[in-house]
Computed example of a mutant assay.
Amino acid sequence: MVNVRRERYREETKTEAKRIALEQLAEQGIAGISVNAIAKRMGVTGPALYRYFAGRDDLLNELIRDAWHDLADTVEATVTASEGASPPDRVRAFAEGFRSWAVTQPHRYLLLFGTPLPGYHAPQDTVLAAHRTMSALLVVLPREGFATAGQSTLDAQLAGWAGARGEGDVPPAVLLTAVRAFTRLHGVLSLEVSGQFGPMGIDPALLYRAEVESLILGDSGVRGSTRLSGPG
């Protein structure tokens, strides 16, 4: 029973520390996260909090890991809810889930996709957590309508990347489509969450949806594919 209480207290302490760290992130960016400042707000000493986090990088690892899994949970839920819909509608569902998560918590989006913190290197398990979002995109992409992949260097790189993450059965042409689609959606979202469209007088939601439609209609220039919606 003592061990159970101790573990509960440990988890509650870590949860509170991460909550404050996210507030720091929202207010000051990633450089503003300070373990000592968090400890002060919690009414404990810095060394006491280091019993739960080895240092700021350890805390960042947890924040990044949590964010990747939260993002993946969101897009996976939208993809699951779209089962039975047409491929274009499933692509739209993924895209809307992706954007919804980003715009409701832009500080966490920028934690994942913003300027890297100098000297920080994410551990391998956060990289694997990140792949869950790409896997959700691969689920909604049709397998038909793509030309047979060649044996280019890029094909081999895509196959190696996917194979290492359990996606070895996905054709390289589909992998390329997914990577390029993700890149384009991320590009619009990154500009939106950093406030770049405000001075232009452009509604970023409309621009984002226009980008989604252009992907579905197939102007992404992917080899052998005319559209993300599949043949027809």
Results as ranks from 00 to 15, higher is better:
R5H: 13
A122W: 04
D70K: 04
T183G: 15
P106W: 12
A130F: 07
I38N: 02
T13Q: 05
R56I: 02
H107E: 13
L25C: 00
R99E: 06
G224Q: 08
V35K: 00
R10Y: 14
D66K: 01
N61K: 06
L175I: 10
R180M: 14
Y109K: 00
V4R: 12
A156N: 07
V127G: 08
D73G: 05
V193C: 06
L154A: 10
Y120M: 00
T104A: 12
I30G: 00
E83K: 06
Q28F: 15
T15K: 11
P88D: 07
A210H: 01
P88Y: 05
P116S: 07
D73Y: 03
M1H: 13
G46K: 03
G145P: 08
R108S: 04
E96W: 13
L217A: 15
I64S: 01
E16V: 04
E23V: 14
M134S: 13
L60I: 05
G166H: 11
W161N: 04
L175P: 04
R209E: 09
F182C: 00
F113G: 00
A159R: 09
G163H: 11
L49P: 04
L215S: 08
Y109W: 15
S190W: 11
S229M: 04
E7D: 09
D57A: 10
G168S: 15
H186E: 12
D169H: 15
L22D: 03
G230Q: 03
A205R: 10
V91I: 15
R8T: 14
R6I: 08
E167T: 01
L185N: 06
L154F: 14
E11P: 01
V91S: 02
M134V: 04
N61H: 15
L185Y: 14
V174N: 07
L117Q: 00
T133E: 12
A162R: 03
V75N: 10
G160F: 13
S34E: 08
W161S: 08
A31W: 06
M42K: 02
E62R: 07
V170I: 15
